[in-house]
Nucleic acid binder design. Structure first.
Length: 415
RNA sequence: CGGGGAGUAGCGCAGCUUGGCUAGCGCGUUUGGUUCGGGACCAAAAGGUCGUGGGUUCAAAUCCCACCUCCCCGACCA
């Protein structure tokens, strides 16, 4: 991919209104654009990151045996009345009437829809267990949208729902999901913690929250400096670690995932029943598992940036490597840059070539800002000594490499 | 919704207190030239319903009223 053709819209200054690090950097690097408060467009660079994160989520969900599907955003209020959550959701739910006078909402979450679906198909113990998930846009009329995509009125969530014949089955899938979540957040390059949590509006017996320590986090957690044990803020009065009896550090954190054992809360009201081996009617045990996919982008940036810009963890970076020819009108330099771009692309890497006729300084600044993990500079040393420069965005370390051998870079970029 | 702040060119801002005639500056953009390894320089140019509507006045970005929008703190959440 060539920079000049890729709609990358970097800015020297971020709008004054943006305060959190992730929001400022997302605006400056041209990942998102606000349409109205709490509603953002993902520009190509941001969308690439989103796609990478979605991909990680998909892979790990599929590994648990969950199957992807897509549920509608348009839902009937009637369905919500059946579970009593119509009132509970209140004004957070975006409601309207269509031309036929049907009372509808834009789905803020999908327990009702998925349960209705399951009720229609689950008949026998042989139909169980199964887990379904989707990656889809949710709508919530937030009281106060905040920090860009951290709290927005329209956001992308991965929501999974498990259906089991008994609590034993539910416990097993719950633990599987918990493990999958840990893998997902690790792959996203996040330092995260998980705590037992209130189940809130979703309901159910037990839930775990996954939180990412971040300056702009809206939650508070306490983490033991010795053993790493984490407690939520609601476990008030805790001044020291119950294990080590040492002070716990107070951290702001951002909730990025939440998993719930729902039990029969929804399956009972919406009638997800099956006949067991003895022909007795039983109620399905459900679990639900959410990840704020779009919020993850902000969380990753909160934890991975410096004064110059974003530092993408490898797995979620919009590109694997950036090639910077310092002077595009120098044929020697340009030809080598193109050769590298083509060869590394052929090897399956996402390669961005900064083909702009800009001064090197401008390109380096943009390179740091957009945070592509690896940079190959083709400059005067190539023209004079046949050497290229390989720079790691995170460590800042620079390695000089004898050029002319694109294959040699492959290992470096992948390392 | 309660409390605080702000809307002037794509972005960042000045001008408003003390109305005044063609509304400024920096960045960015366009054209030409010189530069060329960490956000270059010179010259020329394009780009603005001063958030919207109403009022006061000879005259409103500036004063008054209403409304809209955005940001920050609080309650809520992925």
């Amino acid at each position: 991919m060539y920079w000049s053709r890729s709609f990358i819209t970097t800015l020297k200054e971020a709008p004054e209104a943006a305060e959190s690090a992730s929001h400022r950097l997302m605006l400056r690097s041209g990942m998102v654009r606000m349409l109205i408060s709490g509603v953002y467009s993902y520009l190509p660079l941001g969308y690439r990151v989103l796609a990478r994160i979605e991909n990680i989520v998909r892979q790990e969900m599929n590994k648990t045996g969950a199957q992807e599907l897509l549920l509608p955003s348009l839902q009937s209020i009637e369905l919500w009345q059946k579970t009593g959550r119509d009132e509970l959701m209140g004004e957070t739910m975006i409601r309207f009437q269509d031309r036929r006078g049907r009372k509808l909402c834009l789905g803020p979450t999908h327990e009702e829809v998925i349960t209705e679906l399951a009720a229609a198909y689950v008949k026998s113990w042989r139909d169980l267990p199964f887990t379904l998930y989707q990656i889809q846009t949710k709508f919530r009329d937030e009281l106060r949208p905040r920090f860009g995509v951290v709290r927005s009125c329209e956001f992308i969530m991965k929501d999974a729902y498990s259906f089991d014949r008994d609590l034993d089955g539910l416990n097993k899938i719950y633990e599987k999901m918990r493990a999958a979540y840990e893998t997902i957040f690790k792959r996203c390059g996040l330092d995260f913690v998980s705590i037992k949590a209130d189940s809130g509006v979703i309901g159910g017996d037990l839930s775990h929250e996954f939180l990412v320590p971040a300056e702009s986090g809206e939650d508070i957690v306490f983490r033991c400096k010795i053993c790493g044990m984490v407690l939520g803020a609601h476990e008030a009065g805790i001044e020291e670690c119950p294990h080590c009896h040492k002070d716990m550090g107070k951290l702001n954190a951002l909730e990025v995932g939440h998993i719930f054992k729902l039990g029969d809360k929804y399956s009972k009201t919406l009638g997800v029943k099956f006949l067991d081996e003895e022909g007795r009617q039983q109620i399905v045990q459900m679990g639900c598992y959410g990840i704020g996919v779009s919020r993850l982008i902000a969380a990753v940036i909160e934890q991975n940036h410096d004064e110059n810009g974003i530092i993408w963890p490898k797995e979620v970076a919009p590109f694997d490597v950036l090639i910077v020819p310092v002077n595009v009108s120098d044929k020697l330099i340009w030809d080598e840059a193109v050769k590298l771009h083509d060869e590394l692309s052929r090897q399956g890497l996402d390669v961005l070539l900064d083909d702009r006729d800009e001064r090197a300084g401008v390109k380096f600044k943009d390179a740091d800002l957009t945070g592509i993990p690896r940079r190959i500079t083709v400059g005067t040393k190539w023209a004079k000594e046949g050497k290229l420069e390989f720079k790691d965005r995170r460590t800042g370390s620079v390695t000089e490499i004898q050029g002319g051998d694109p294959a040699g870079f492959l290992a470096l970029v992948r390392s």
